[in-house]
Amino acid sequence: MKTKFIKQPASKKGFKTIIWLFIILTIVAIPSYFSTKNDIKTLAGRYNSPLSPIIMIPGSSASATRFEDLVGTINKKFDEHHSLLELTVHKNDTITYKGSIKNNDNRPFIVVGFENNKDGYSNIKQQARWFSIAFNDLMSRYKFNNFDGFGHSNGGLIWTYYLEHYFDSNDINMNRMMTVGTPYNFEERNQSKRTQMLSDFEKNKSKLPTDLTYYSIAGTKAYTDDGIVPIGSVEAGKYIFEGQINHYTLITLTGKNAQHSDMIDNPQFISLFHQYIINDKNATPPNKTDRRSVNK
């Protein structure tokens, strides 16, 4: 039996199959050629990098490692695997990177901390400039075109100063921002007494991105403050954001762990953060036209 097959020119069968192979390839090629052309046209229109990081700024006297526990808790609680990248901007404008962004992670956390992390208006201006250096470096490194922002305490002030003085919404889109215990009027309880910073913020508010959605969280115990920041000072943010940006929401957290520094461990806060920031549906819409091309 065997020898019979060896002698027989089996290639006849083989050649037929090779011809079939090329027929199948051609049949597959024609429709995929047109659908690829079409896909690339859509893609070029959307021109979207899938990366949409969540950029976080810690409060005064905290370093870039401030949110490690928060990220760990979120990854565990929601069974997600967000990567964490920590940047520290030094006094001489140089940047130190720690951690990395996993390639298939479209929602990584990027924390920007500062070597000089002192309190006070002049320091916040400095830190906003340092943040803009870090931000530009991130943009050229990772090529994202939209992001969400988070600031704890004075981190929110740095965000606001940065948005008013350095941010260019033609280049990049800020989808949502969330801050916790951000004192827009510093320690001032009385909103009629405005600090220099608050009136500066108000003066430049027209430069804030108009399509921004912002959630400001205030913590209180005994109706007045979160232990450090008076609720009136957080609430004063309305003079800056109301009517200027797309949506401005003030959320008041009370109960256990609503103190200024504990708030980011608060389970209520973590679910708000997950709901509004991580699950932000505006971040890299898969089938939506890019807003940037509409603007231009």
Partner: peptide, 14 residues
């Protein structure tokens, strides 16, 4: 696969 179909005469290979 193409090489086998082209030159091979072994029934199993084909």
């Amino acid at each position: 696969i193409i090489a086998i179909l082209w030159v091979s005469r072994d029934r199993d290979f084909i």
